[in-house]
């Protein structure tokens, strides 16, 4: 590869775009949050943390994202393993099927769940008419609804990340373990899951970051009583005109996603090292 000056010209448009319309706008909102009265102070952050309502929203966002992630892992691990053992053509079809919802917008996908979970929705109608419950129960506009909707949004991403890693696990490894007397479940937990860890972590990064910053799903399935950080920032910025508060929320969202992504990547690196040593 030759070294020359071409790259300056080639990367310049991208640099300009991202500097002007990503970095500068971000710095313009984040930096002032540390100088509320002209001098450096963490006052705005302190008042966010001491506000029980805001803090509750912060922890709800984390809770929903963690639970969504865990549910996606539990559902995707056996399914992805099964798919990873399929023949190429069939595997391709299964991946394509999982990709389809990802190309459909999130409003459509959240809307589907409002028709299922609503008071007069499909699920309530079915439960009442079958006599299982006497009257419709509140399913929509709950934290549970947000979690179901988020799993629905991001499960395909976890599936695809896992299949990509699991198809590289050779059949012989599992057969060796089985022939040495380990049963199926033990083999799966002790051999397959550790070998799939890189995929689980990549998937978790995407699912966590996606859930923590999703907007339409928590709004449409959680309602006003179950706000999350992304609906809170919209409310503060666009409905209440409270830009200081919106900027603090923005900073906290960036920090949260940065910390989680890096911790997960750090775990992945540790696991890789441990594996290399063995």
């Amino acid at each position: 590869m030759k070294k020359n000056g071409w790259y300056y010209l080639l990367i310049f448009p991208g640099l300009l775009l991202l500097a002007l319309f990503l970095m500068i706008p971000l710095l313009r909102i984040i930096i002032p949050t540390f100088f509320p009265n002209g001098t450096f102070s963490l006052e705005l952050y302190r008042s966010f943390i001491s506000n029980k309502f805001y803090l509750g929203i912060f922890f709800r966002t984390i809770r929903i994202s963690v639970l969504t992630c865990l549910i996606c892992i539990v559902l995707a691990v056996p399914v992805s393993f099964y798919i990873s053992r399929m023949r190429a053509a069939k595997k391709g079809l299964m991946i394509a099927l999982a990709t389809f919802p990802l190309l459909t917008n999130t409003v459509v996908r959240a809307f589907a769940w409002t028709t299922i979970l609503g008071k007069t929705g499909i699920l309530n109608t079915m439960l009442v008419s079958s006599g299982l419950i006497p009257e419709p129960v509140q399913l929509l506009y709950t934290e549970g609804a947000i979690i179901v909707g988020s799993v629905y949004l991001f499960l395909p991403i976890m599936l695809i990340s896992l299949v990509g890693v699991m198809e590289n696990i050779s059949d012989e490894i599992q057969e060796a373990a089985l022939s040495l007397g380990a049963n199926r479940l033990v083999t799966f937990i002790r051999i397959i899951i550790p070998l799939s860890m890189p995929g689980i972590i990549v998937g978790s990064v995407l699912v966590f970051a996606g859930t923590a910053s999703a907007y339409s799903t928590p709004l449409m399935l959680g309602g006003n009583r179950n706000m999350v950080m992304s609906t809170l920032i919209y409310q503060q910025a666009m409905l209440l005109g409270n830009w200081n508060s919106a900027s603090v929320i923005a900073a906290l969202m960036i920090v949260t996603s940065y910390v989680v992504v890096n911790v997960l990547n750090w775990i992945a690196a540790k696991l890789n090292k441990a594996e290399a040593r063995e």
Partner: peptide, 15 residues
């Protein structure tokens, strides 16, 4: 890597 709502808000105040 940056939450889209954050980018949306930042671009709203800037542009």
């Amino acid at each position: 890597l940056i939450p889209q709502v954050v980018v949306g808000f930042a671009l709203f105040t800037f542009i």
